[in-house]
């Protein structure tokens, strides 16, 4: 469904990932972030979180993926994304991203949820107002 005012889709397409150690390791190689909270089960067990968690940026990447899938490269010029990491995504979790167009018709409420429906990430994806007319 498209909105009449801007032709933006009303919803972002969902994207999902299953958090495996292999996936975390790939993301660590990509980002160069080998924090033991992501890599070392013994360290993670002793931490306040109790077990291995995925990088926050790994989960956040799903939102960008949803945005790119939904907006097909349009409206991304000058876009911005602001998020809070609400819960860790633990090893073994299944996470899914989504978004809903807000009433201003130029930004989306976005999130990443875990398999329990809890928010792992919550935020707002902004589209620059002056590019709305270009698409």
């Amino acid at each position: 469904m498209k909105t009449a005012r801007t032709n933006l889709p009303a919803n972002f397409q969902n994207c999902s990932l299953s958090i495996s150690q292999g996936l975390i390791n790939q993301f660590a190689d990509l980002a160069g972030d080998y924090n033991p909270i992501h890599m070392d089960a013994v360290f993670a067990k002793k931490s306040s979180l109790g077990k291995i968690i995925a990088h926050g940026s790994l989960s956040m990447g799903l939102i960008w993926n949803s945005a790119e899938k939904s907006l097909l490269g349009k409206w991304l010029k000058g876009a911005s994304l602001e998020v809070r990491f609400r819960l860790p995504a633990y090893l073994g979790d299944d996470i899914i991203s989504g978004g809903v167009l807000r009433s201003d018709c130029q930004s989306y409420d976005v999130w990443v949820n875990n398999q329990h429906g809890d928010h792992v990430i919550k935020g707002i994806f902004y589209i620059r107002s002056d590019v709305l007319g270009e698409n």
Partner: peptide, 9 residues
């Protein structure tokens, strides 16, 4: 712990 992020393209 990474608790928040903002990105502007």
């Amino acid at each position: 712990l990474h608790i928040g992020q903002y990105i502007k393209m």
